[in-house]
Simulated scan of single mutants.
Amino acid sequence: MLKILLTFWFFLLGSAVGSFLNVVIYRLPRRESIIFPPSHCPSCGHKLSAKDLIPILSYILLKGRCRYCGARISWRYPVVEFITGISYAILFWIYGFSLFTFKSLILISMLIPIFFIDLENMLIPDVISIPGIVVGLLFSFWEGNLVQGVLGSLIFGGILLLIYVVALLILKEEGMGQGDIKLGFMLGGFLGLKLSLFAIFLSYLIGGIFSILVIVLRSKNLKTAIPFGPFLITGALISLFWGEVLIKLYLSLVFR
């Protein structure tokens, strides 16, 4: 019973964090302070009261519209709050009070705004990814795996940097954004060497499949700009939580 109550508390905590992350997602690309002014409707500018800021519930009760001007509220707000809340709850339910849980909560709380900012603006803010490199290496040090963290960071970011340089030299255009490279250095610090390599493989696999689907279903061409950050994040999270299992499964099938 206690574990269920604590899991629910983690969901509430996560949804509250998600509410703040929505502020980050909206304001960072606009170069606005994430602290001042207080939360307000982006359409009419009216300051939001406490009853307008209840994660998920306020959106439902207001039927997705501003209480003051009736403007439609983006679907992203309840989605981010729910994703963050359920992530916090699942992490605690599976891993309990542990260093891995704490590390994963911090990582997810940084990756969610990067994911949506890149998705909406094709931008990965340095103000998250660069401090994230330091945070990832600190966790590696805390876990006693600093060397692995450094190698993971150098390999993940280094491979993306190499792709960027080669594309620039051969194709005379950027193969990816510079923000993706910095995100790679950040993710590698959290993952370590082996999981970083697996994450890169997954990122390009998922990104490639998605790109083909976009080209086929929407009649786009190969030069259509698609943000790559979400694929890097998806590959990294799969690698973080299931990488060891998937790698062992693959090796068992290949070398049986």
Score class of each variant (00 low, 15 high):
residue 25 I to P: 02
residue 94 I to P: 07
residue 229 G to V: 04
residue 171 L to E: 14
residue 82 F to H: 04
residue 70 G to C: 14
residue 57 L to E: 04
residue 51 K to V: 13
residue 69 C to P: 13
residue 91 L to G: 10
residue 223 K to E: 13
residue 187 L to R: 09
residue 103 K to N: 04
residue 110 M to K: 00
residue 165 V to G: 08
residue 227 P to I: 06
residue 197 L to N: 12
residue 220 K to E: 13
residue 247 I to G: 06
residue 17 V to T: 12
residue 185 F to N: 04
residue 160 L to W: 07
residue 186 M to S: 05
residue 178 Q to P: 00
residue 150 V to Y: 00
residue 231 F to A: 10
residue 226 I to D: 01
residue 80 V to F: 09
residue 216 V to F: 09
residue 141 F to K: 07
residue 142 W to I: 14
residue 74 S to Y: 01
residue 174 E to W: 03
residue 124 I to F: 07
residue 170 I to C: 06
residue 202 L to G: 02
residue 133 I to H: 02
residue 8 F to T: 15
residue 50 A to P: 05
residue 39 S to I: 00
residue 151 L to N: 01
residue 7 T to F: 04
residue 140 S to Q: 00
residue 204 Y to I: 00
residue 75 W to N: 15
residue 252 S to I: 02
residue 110 M to Y: 01
residue 156 F to G: 04
residue 147 V to G: 05
residue 132 G to T: 02
residue 115 F to K: 05
residue 23 V to R: 02
residue 231 F to K: 13
residue 29 P to K: 07
residue 205 L to I: 11
residue 192 G to H: 08
residue 232 L to I: 09
residue 218 R to K: 14
residue 18 G to E: 10
residue 1 M to C: 12
residue 84 T to M: 11
residue 187 L to Y: 08
residue 37 P to E: 01
residue 32 E to P: 03
residue 78 P to F: 12
residue 210 F to M: 06
residue 57 L to R: 04
residue 170 I to S: 11
residue 144 G to T: 01
residue 128 I to A: 05
residue 54 I to N: 10
residue 81 E to T: 10
residue 103 K to M: 15
residue 87 S to P: 12
residue 72 R to A: 15
residue 234 T to Q: 04
residue 245 V to M: 14
residue 132 G to P: 01
residue 166 V to P: 08
residue 241 F to E: 11
residue 23 V to H: 00
residue 198 F to Q: 09
residue 78 P to S: 12
residue 112 I to R: 05
residue 206 I to R: 00
residue 82 F to S: 06
residue 216 V to K: 14
residue 241 F to W: 14
residue 201 F to N: 05
residue 58 S to G: 09
residue 178 Q to A: 15
residue 201 F to R: 07
residue 133 I to K: 02
residue 3 K to I: 15
residue 65 R to L: 06
residue 189 G to P: 06
residue 91 L to V: 12
residue 122 M to L: 03
residue 196 S to V: 13
residue 212 I to G: 00
residue 103 K to A: 09
residue 228 F to C: 08
residue 48 L to T: 05
residue 212 I to C: 01
residue 86 I to V: 15
residue 153 S to K: 04
residue 129 S to H: 04
residue 152 G to E: 09
residue 228 F to Q: 03
residue 23 V to N: 02
residue 255 F to E: 11
residue 81 E to L: 06
residue 44 C to D: 08
residue 139 F to W: 02
residue 95 Y to I: 11
residue 28 L to N: 00
